[in-house]
Amino acid sequence: MKNLVKTSLFAFIAVFMASTFTMAANPDKTTEKARTAVSNAAPDDWHTLAESAQMCIKKGVNLKEAKQWLDTSLQIKKSAFGKEVAGDYYLSNKLYEKAINSYVESMKLIKEKDFYADTDDIQKKIDKAKKSL
């Protein structure tokens, strides 16, 4: 009986480790798609970097690399879109004050271009972050 338990436990651990290795070796489709877009983008293509980061953040995958893409995007160009995606990243990581600050910066950048632009969606994200404080 003890041998059966040991064998079963060993088999379970082996299967778990094999599945973990397989998952690490085969990134999800969102990550693959984002990496492909980033690798095909021009060096100054801030939008593709931010868009790829947004895809990963929405799916909750590859967040470390997504944050690097986002930071690079914002270094190339401080955009309203990039700031909104940064807010989404911070919100997903429960960094509510940083999320609020990023969303406010996004709204300011939008309003600089068009004072009458609709920013209701970003305001809703700010309200959500404030409720989580």
Rank of each mutant, 00 (worst) to 15 (best):
I100M: 07
N101K: 10
A18F: 13
N62C: 07
D71N: 06
F10A: 15
E51T: 13
L74A: 03
M55H: 08
D114T: 09
M55S: 09
L9A: 13
N26R: 09
K59H: 09
A11R: 08
T119W: 02
V5F: 12
K83S: 14
T36P: 02
A24R: 14
W69R: 00
C56Y: 01
F81I: 10
D45S: 05
A42V: 05
A42L: 11
K131T: 09
A41D: 03
L91D: 09
S132A: 14
I110M: 11
T119R: 04
L70R: 00
K67D: 09
K77G: 00
L91Q: 07
S8E: 15
Q54E: 14
V104L: 11
S92A: 11
A41N: 02
E112M: 12
A42Y: 06
D44Y: 05
Q68Y: 04
E105A: 11
K59F: 04
I110N: 10
A80C: 09
A42P: 04
M23W: 12
A53P: 04
P27K: 06
T22S: 14
Q75Y: 05
I122H: 02
S19K: 08
Q123T: 13
E51R: 11
A117T: 06
G60Q: 07
K108E: 14
T22H: 14
K29I: 10
S39P: 07
I122E: 02
M1W: 11
M17V: 15
D114G: 00
A34H: 02
L74Q: 07
S52D: 03
K29M: 10
